[in-house]
Design a protein around this nucleic acid. Sequence first.
RNA 1: GGCCGGAUGCCCGAGUGGACUAAGGGAGCGGAUUGCAAAUCCGCGAUUCGUGGGUUCGAAUCCCACUCCGGCCUCCA
Length: 539
Amino acid sequence: MIIPEFYNTLTHHIAPLKPSRPGPDPQDPLNGAEITLYSCGPTVYDYAHIGNFRSFLFADLLRRYLEIRGAVVRQVMNMTDVGHMTDDQIADGAGRDKLELAVEKMKENKKTGRALVENPNDPFQVADFFIQAFQQDALTLRLQVVMDHHAAPEAEKENIMPRPTRHIGEFISLIRTLISRGHAYVGSDGVVYFDVGSFPDYGALSGNSVDQLAHGAGGRTNEQAAKRHPADFFLWKPDQKHIMRWPSPWGDGYPGWHVECSSMAMSILGESLDIHTGGEDNIFPHHECEIAQSQCATGRPFVHLWMHARHLMVNGEKMSKSKGNFFTIRDLVEKGYDPLVVRYALLAARYRETLNFTLKGLHEAAAAITTLRDLAEKLLLAVAGVDEAAGDGLPSTRTALSQLAQTLDPADLDMLTEFDRALAEDLNISAALAAVFIWAPPLLKQKTIGFPCARSALLALKRVDHVLQVAFPPVLPFDPAKLADIESLLAGRNAARAARDFAQSDAVRRQLLALGVELKDTPAGTTWRRCLAPAVPPA
RNA sequence: GGCCGGAUGCCCGAGUGGACUAAGGGAGCGGAUUGCAAAUCCGCGAUUCGUGGGUUCGAAUCCCACUCCGGCCUCCA
């Protein structure tokens, strides 16, 4: 078996993944391994945008790939409900809090009659609102960790998607430990700072050195009397007036924004994690500081493999609200794109390349997904004709490929082998998809497909789709409210066709297309299905 | 200023020394089929990989220089 290799931001090298709890087979340690994975999640003072979701989907791709290789992945994704500073010119947490700004916005909304929460003065309600919105979006994109959280019993939820505001006590004890071990101190301003000088490896992840950080031309550190070193960052800031504050040995205040991930990751997953993911902007300072805090507190390596997704651009430019190229998932759904089209578009480019997101790209994604859905539909039909239970009786999609070799037709096994191999090369999704799109057309072209073949191909496609999550179910549900309109338009079109009034027939087709319905005329009659993308492609 | 990535056909995007006559997707074009339709099927498309040098029997792939683009350097996925 090929052992997957991934690029480690910390070492700057691609290296084989070595699970800390491998499976029983030394040749295939991933099969049966337990892997701990911590993914930096969203801050919840606004709707998450497609850039956020690219990074979360990259983690989802990684996780789902490890799963089809037979690993059990324990993934945690935090929901940052403590605000962070917006004007953080210096590393001490000055400036206005993002949640505070969100609260302001909510109040504005209330004035204009668009109240989103009951009490817009309550930062907890505001955070709750955006957490709900994030989870709704994430579920439509089929992020496994959020699906797990959704399905989990109440007592387990906090171990899947923890919220910092519910772990303040743990943060305080972590900070205490750091102070007692000489890695943190209370400055003359009463703020608790981490002492970067006490951790020689500070800067290893980002390629900085403590010295450079102090003198970097673009660096935003500056000398402050209260701190020992300009790069020292705060762990606890006492602030009697802050919008969110908790009691602590250093006075009422709030925790530093790096503490939450260190603390929650270690308390839920253990002191040493297999993998930690995030967006590239997290490398410095966030993950650098996490390493410092965690390793100074435990004396053990914090994370074996650091993986970071590159940012995405929109229409060749950095995404920003002022440029009007800022998209949320709900924006795109509003335009008529299926969320799974968005999933595919954000997933289909390699995570270490900058992705240029365009609406044209969404249409390309829709076309690609349609091929897979057509195949899924055909295979399910072929199997259902022989044995109703066959679709459910397949081996799990999480079965290592070596255990499926006997079950599969050679062409299907070849495709899956190539799919696995490509993803094993630092998640080369493009090459993996190429294998799928070489494999699928011959199956689609076969006029009929026998049961054993269909069953094997179905198993193969389901395994691929365990990772991709775009092909099943092949027919998407449709807004029932529109159903009557569609039926009557369809009847009218059939009448026009019977009368050979093709101009009228085509006019109705265009009407249906505008409603998000595409038609297929077959000898057996006309069938229709929901479109995955709006009818008119962008210019 | 420091550090890090990138430039492949009309677009997106694999390929990191010989099986590259450069994967795959999208758009386009020609044909079959059809209702001079949609869907589907068949076929076509980079003598070339940002520019200029070099190494090599051999370079998209290695080295040097240059041009351009992007990211980070304490808000950020």
